[in-house]
Design a protein around this nucleic acid. Structure first.
Lengths: 108, 108
DNA sequence: AAAATATGTTCAGTACTCCGAACATTTTAG
DNA sequence: CTAAAATGTTCGGAGTACTGAACATATTTT
């Protein structure tokens, strides 16, 4: 069970030592709205706002939304691989993608 | 000179062969709203909605928002590949990772 | 050609995002 | 301790995200 959006924002904000006002200032928001995101149910911020918040908190919007639980241990290996993959040159990337296509066609 | 959110959604939708109604159905939206995102000025969707749209279009929310112009179309291709990769079974993942290791050793 | 179907556009209404400013509580200073 | 400052909470309202259903236009079928 992953933490909900509200808790993630609060935890990340505090771990960065930000007050409501500070995070609000950094993201062009009001502190009352940041408070609502952390406390009111259920928060449904605009992509724009959440993007700025994610940026200041050093995470992705996807992580905050947790659309596809990307926090398990196995996923850590995947994330590590992805970071490596992104640094490779286009030719290598394309080769790897074409190899991946093979498996993808089989399953399904 | 990055394409605006509206154009990105329309271009990606058409490249996938989706009608407004199809994309709406896939993302739990109304077709009228998808149309607004593509045509009305300026669209400011919720993170939740844009997340579902990004998922169906095979890109990240960050790519669609592209506030600081740091994301290229190649990044979107990478994100699409990564999404696919994550859904593969562990054996296939491991194989791909081991292949990636080879290239990584060569360069740099 | 018209009829049928698929796709795109418009519109009014509801619910919610987001703000400013007041109010409350905690923390720091004297 | 009290006063001041910092941080957190509540509230009213302006503007908008999002919908369903009607309307318009393009495409296909007979």
């Amino acid at each position: 069970m992953s933490t909900a959006l509200a808790d993630k924002i609060r935890d990340l904000r505090k771990s960065k030592g930000f007050t409501l006002e500070k995070l609000a200032e950094l993201t062009g928001s009001s502190k009352s709205y940041i408070w609502e995101l952390e406390n009111k149910t259920p928060p449904r911020p605009s992509a724009e706002k959440l993007g700025k918040i994610a940026e200041q908190l050093g995470v992705t919007i996807e992580y905050l939304l947790d659309t596809d639980g990307s926090l398990t241990i196995e996923d850590a290996a995947d994330a590590r691989f992805y970071r490596k993959y992104k640094q490779m040159d286009d030719k290598a990337k394309a080769k790897i993608r074409s190899i991946a296509e093979l498996w993808d066609d089989d399953s399904d």
